[in-house]
Measured scan of single mutants.
Amino acid sequence: DIEITTNGEEDAKRVIKELQKRNLEYHIEVHGNQWVIKVR
């Protein structure tokens, strides 16, 4: 598993777009303004 910590929603959406392009499965956890994306 890979864990990507982003700085808020805009940053997270940019990362998610890339993950979707590669058809990767991911899970999002929001901790305040930090979005942690866990990639399987």
Rank of each mutant, 00 (worst) to 15 (best):
V15H: 04
E25R: 09
R40W: 07
V15L: 11
A12N: 02
V30L: 05
H31R: 14
Q34W: 08
I2M: 13
L19G: 00
Q34T: 07
W35G: 04
R14M: 10
A12S: 03
H31S: 10
L19R: 00
G32I: 03
T6G: 13
V15A: 04
D1W: 15
G32D: 13
E25S: 11
T5Y: 14
L24W: 06
G32K: 05
N7H: 12
I16H: 01
Q34Y: 10
H27F: 14
K21P: 01
R40N: 11
A12W: 04
T5G: 03
K13C: 14
E9L: 13
V39R: 00
K38T: 15
N23M: 09
E29M: 06
K38Q: 09
I4Q: 01
T6I: 15
H27V: 14
E9F: 13
R40H: 15
I16M: 08
R14T: 07
I4K: 01
H31I: 14
T5S: 08
E10L: 09
Y26R: 00
V36C: 05
Q20N: 10
D1G: 12
I37T: 01
E10Q: 10
V30T: 06
N33I: 03
I4P: 02
L24R: 05
Q20P: 01
L19K: 01
N23W: 04
K38Y: 09
V36F: 05
I37Q: 00
K21R: 14
V15M: 06
E3H: 11
V15G: 01
K13G: 07
N23P: 01
N33E: 10
E3F: 15
I2A: 05
W35S: 06
I37P: 02
E10C: 14
I28S: 01
E3P: 02
V36G: 01
R22P: 01
Q34R: 12
I28M: 05
V39M: 03
G8S: 15
Y26F: 13
T5N: 06
G8T: 15
E10R: 10
R22E: 04
D1Y: 15
E29Q: 08
R14K: 12
V39A: 02
Y26N: 00
D1N: 12
Q34P: 00
K13A: 12
I16L: 07
E29L: 06
T5A: 07
N23E: 07
E3G: 03
E29V: 11
N7L: 12
A12Y: 07
V15T: 04
I2S: 05
T5F: 14
V30Y: 08
E3V: 15
A12Q: 02
L19F: 03
L19M: 04
I16R: 01
N23Y: 05
W35M: 13
I37C: 05
I2G: 04
D1E: 13
N7T: 10
K13V: 09
E9T: 05
L19A: 02
V30Q: 09
N7S: 11
H31G: 03
E18H: 08
N23F: 06
V36E: 04
E9W: 15
E3N: 08
D1V: 14
K38A: 05
I37F: 03
R22S: 07
I4H: 02
L24F: 06
A12G: 05
T6Y: 05
V30I: 14
E18D: 08
G32R: 02
E10F: 08
K17H: 11
E9V: 11
I37L: 01
R22H: 11
L24K: 05
G8C: 13
N7K: 09
V36M: 02
H31W: 06
G8I: 08
G8E: 07
I37R: 00
T6K: 03
T5Q: 09
G32Q: 03
Y26M: 04
V36K: 04
R40V: 15
V30H: 06
I16Y: 01
I2R: 08
T6W: 02
V15Y: 06
T6R: 05
L19W: 00
R40Q: 13
R14C: 14
H31Y: 07
Y26V: 05
N7V: 11
V15C: 11
D11V: 08
G8Q: 08
G8Y: 07
V39Q: 00
K21E: 13
E29C: 15
Q34F: 11
A12E: 01
E25N: 08
V39I: 13
V36N: 02
T5H: 13
I2L: 13
I37S: 00
I16E: 04
A12F: 13
E29Y: 06
K38F: 09
R40F: 12
N23K: 11
Q20G: 05
R14D: 06
H31M: 11
V30S: 04
I28H: 00
I2F: 15
I4S: 01
T6N: 02
E9R: 10
K13Q: 12
Q20Y: 03
E29H: 05
E10Y: 08
K21L: 12
V30K: 12
V36L: 08
E25M: 09
K17L: 13
E18R: 06
H31P: 00
L19Y: 01
D1R: 10
N33A: 05
N7Q: 11
I37M: 00
N33C: 07
K13H: 10
E9A: 12
I2T: 07
I28N: 00
L19P: 00
R14V: 10
Y26I: 07
E9I: 13
D1L: 14
R40T: 14
Q20R: 11
I37Y: 00
E29T: 11
R40L: 15
L24D: 02
E25T: 10
E29A: 05
E10H: 09
Y26K: 00
Q34A: 05
I16N: 00
W35N: 04
N33P: 14
G32S: 02
